[in-house]
Nucleic acid binder design. Structure first.
Lengths: 196, 196
DNA sequence: CGCGGGTTTGATGATGCTCAAGCCCGGTGG
DNA sequence: CCACCGGGCTTGAGCATCATCAAACCCGCG
């Protein structure tokens, strides 16, 4: 298996592993190829993986008390994905994680991640930095969610995640942005009309 | 100075420092007492501290392109506060951080935090865990922001942050929840009416 | 006593939702 | 090769939620 994508990612975050550490990490990772539209974590179960996407695309979403779906997160190649809350505390998940396309995933289990952190403490730094960055991104997302009208949220989204926005159905984008698919459709047609 | 509140916090997160490490951390921390309604970080400047609240209460907020304020975060005793995005990358902040009450803050600078992480790598774990938890909390917040109507958001807020909600003006809560103060007022009076 | 910040109340209007219908298009089976 | 099906997208009407603006109120404080 070629995990270079991951090791590149680690390097890019300023963490430099020696050969032994690379070996260690490789030995602790599991590999899985998943067909499209497969649920790999469902609400109520404990999320058993902390995964890194080698290829493909996934979404995580929760279903609220009114039965409405809310996409919380997308992941593509070179992104991590898990229900951290569930994974870390080994409690039942509130999220569903589903492949959008056929996906190749490598992942830690709770134990293997802890072992790896124990034996290669450099990775503490790597994960600390990852979480810092996620936190910043989440912050930013919250801010645009609170402050921008729907049309601008959409424009920000396609600007920021251009590739992604061309790979996934509009309803997913709408759900991610917290607006109805119908409304997104109207926004888009309005944008086209403006463009003339 | 008595930094026990911080060291307790570190212990509660499963990180156990020896005396030397406690010494080290203490030596790297700065202390500051701040009067109420003081801006200690403003948009455009680099946020120079990564702070832990010993007493008092603060808020961080951003001002959007329409001039509207959005509170992104509150901090009280035993909470950390900073503009992480700015602090970490040493780039200009988009947030303002202001004391709501008179506040005692201990804080790292960028350098002192890096030194401390270098010399006491156990703290990598502590911060990694903190960020994990923040991320989970942020996730949760995003979800309630997207899925709940205003009245429920308010009820969740006062349930979750009971103490805080009794210490701060309603307008702050409204701003945090992303609704107008007038609307919050109406929600409250509606709730009272229902209660009979 | 008057000032001012925070809160309340009401009228009006915008934003975005729901529901329902129709359309477009790729996939499947006859 | 065509007919049909179904999922995703579009469009429109009517409605709920929430914002804005303006005025009044309450109360602690100088």
């Amino acid at each position: 298996m070629n995990y270079e994508l991951l090791f590149d990612n680690i390097k890019r975050h300023g963490v430099f592993l020696n050969n032994e550490e690379v070996e260690l990490v490789t030995s602790k990772l599991h590999y899985r190829k998943i067909k499209r539209k497969q649920l790999i974590c469902s609400a109520g179960e404990v999320c058993q993986f902390y995964g890194f996407v080698l290829s493909g695309c996934l979404r995580s979403y929760s279903i609220d008390e009114y039965g409405a779906e809310h996409i919380t997160y997308f992941a593509m190649e070179d992104w991590w994905i898990s229900d951290i809350a569930s994974f870390i505390s080994q409690t039942p998940s509130h999220l569903n994680i589903e492949t959008i396309e056929e996906t190749e995933l490598i992942y830690f289990t709770k134990e293997s991640r802890e072992q790896v952190l124990e034996e290669a403490p450099k990775l503490e730094k790597y994960f600390r930095i990852l979480f810092e960055k996620s936190l910043v991104a989440n912050h930013q997302r919250l801010l645009t969610t609170l402050s921008l009208p729907a049309a601008e949220k959409y424009l920000e989204f396609i600007k920021k995640y251009k590739k992604l926005s061309e790979r996934i159905p509009q309803t997913h984008i709408a759900s991610f942005l917290g607006i109805s698919p119908e409304h997104l459709s109207k926004i888009r047609s309005e944008l086209v009309r403006r463009r003339d």
